[in-house]
Design a protein around this nucleic acid. Structure first.
Lengths: 134, 134
DNA sequence: GACTTACTGAGAACCGTTGTCAAAACGATT
DNA sequence: AATCGTTTTGACAACGGTTCTCAGTAAGTC
């Protein structure tokens, strides 16, 4: 039987607070920072659980996996700031259809797709501009 | 000055032969299999070089990086078989535009996107069907 | 409160990848 | 063809993120 522990709740909550995509290690550091004694392995386990249950999305970037609290049960994609990790959830029916059509046109079955946009958000763009042109 | 070695050529050629996305380790194994004495580190270095020069595309899957020989200088996406790695290059102008528009609508700049479709190709589907219903 | 058993913490282990450095070899030059 | 400066290679160590192991802890049940 599945049990509820303060550790799982702490990870869920910290992931929510993060607002964007964060690594397991960053999340662990943040939790320790705020006084928690949670172990790194537990953070990994909790994140895996959340992802399996559809409460979190994950993506790989530069050799590490990033996690984010996501609207459960909804299929969506992400617009992610490369600088600060801030993320916007996007739905795009036309892209869904395009993906399905493209796959079946080539005889592919059981198709899933990865559609993510990486950029620099308005706030980080501003900061960068001000830094380079003072 | 950049030099040409048989090792680089061997990697380029093996990557071409692979036909789909393969890992550095798999490529190294294949090369050794066919009698080459090339070192693993060299395969990694060659693949990094090819990717930098736009002769290969790469993507991350399950904690490892996969490489593929690609049409140089063309922006395209991939339709990849989860079973055998076979890959089809796809161009999709509407998706490009959608990505650009979505990013700018949310104030994001310097946007790049990742758009890949994973599925099971016709041949692998056939094989799976035959295996389960003999 | 006692019991069962899932979960946690600490560290070792794992695995893909990158760094190090002496030896090899490419390519320009003579 | 022999020499030379420099790039590249190969073998292995090191690295970093993630997973495994296992004894100890604690959630939920009776």
């Amino acid at each position: 039987m599945k049990r509820n522990t303060w550790q799982k709740e702490a990870v869920r909550s910290a992931l929510g607070d993060a607002g964007g995509f964060v690594s397991a290690q960053a999340l662990h550091a943040a939790l320790r920072e705020s006084g928690s004694t949670i172990a790194l392995a537990t953070v990994y386990r909790a994140l895996t659980g959340l992802t399996d249950e559809g409460e979190a999305d994950s993506l790989q970037q530069e050799g590490e996996v990033l996690y984010r609290a996501c609207t459960p049960g909804s299929h969506h994609h992400h617009l992610i700031c490369r600088r600060c990790g801030t993320t916007v959830e996007i739905e795009a029916q036309p892209v869904e259809e395009w993906a399905r059509r493209t796959a079946s046109e080539h005889g592919f079955t059981r198709a899933e797709h990865v559609v993510d946009i990486f950029g620099v958000c308005a706030r980080c763009s501003d900061l960068a501009d001000r830094a380079s042109r003072p």
